[in-house]
């Protein structure tokens, strides 16, 4: 899949990876796995920006998120629930800030804007380098932003290194099991049609 032009998420899996989350109200990262949730300060991690899932997500306390991802860049998935917002999902990996792989999936406008700016920098460097290496990013701080919802924080990222793709981050869509159908009001979903029962005889003269 070619690199996308940018992370234009727009306005509005059976995956059990640990979670890397950002609380925009507190301006803090946290890592959550089966052992619980731990706050992390200014984490450093590998981020797989070659494989970014854009789609819709609804997060509700105490419930598994309901998510669906766009089938192709530029083609939005149909929502599966009215309260879903545009989201971005990407896989990360670290050995110090947290251990192993973690999924970062966010609908936070502040995080999305930060990742969008990061993506632009990443894209330019990745195309120039052409070696397929993944960026290692560090959250160098947070910037407060006041709006009608109060004060929220936007993380500030900096690419600090480039590494070979870790085995823990296979080159694949982060949530291929959650790809949705294209939101196309004019196209009814299609059904697979079986091959004709009697195949062509070998006497057909191919024209090639």
């Amino acid at each position: 899949m070619a690199l996308m032009n940018d992370l234009d998420v727009g306005t509005g899996s059976g995956n059990y990876d640990p979670i890397l989350k950002f609380n925009a109200k507190a301006g803090r990262f946290a890592h959550r796995d089966s052992d619980g949730e731990v706050e992390i300060e200014n984490p450093t991690f590998v981020i797989d920006l070659y494989n970014v899932g854009l789609g819709w997500a609804a997060f509700r306390e105490g419930e598994a998120p309901e998510r669906v991802f766009d089938p192709e860049p530029g083609m939005r998935a149909a929502k599966t629930r009215d309260d879903q917002k545009r989201c971005m999902m990407v896989r990360t990996f670290a050995t110090e800030s947290f251990k192993g792989r973690a999924e970062l999936c966010t609908t936070s406008m502040h995080m999305l804007n930060a990742l969008k700016d990061l993506y632009a920098v990443f894209r330019e460097a990745a195309e120039k380098n052409g070696d397929g290496k993944l960026p290692v990013i560090n959250c160098v701080g947070v910037t407060p932003s006041k709006d009608k919802y109060g004060t929220n924080y936007r993380p500030e990222f900096k690419i600090v290194d480039w590494v070979e793709r870790p085995d823990e981050l296979p080159d694949e869509h982060p949530a291929s099991d959650l790809i949705g159908s294209a939101a196309n009001d004019n196209a009814a979903p299609s059904s697979h049609v079986a091959a004709p029962k009697k195949a062509a005889a070998n006497g057909n003269r191919p024209v090639f």
Partner: peptide
């Protein structure tokens, strides 16, 4: 060929 299966024929 596509990495994802579309649910319908695109325009």
């Amino acid at each position: 060929t596509s990495l994802r299966m579309p649910s319908s024929i695109s325009d």
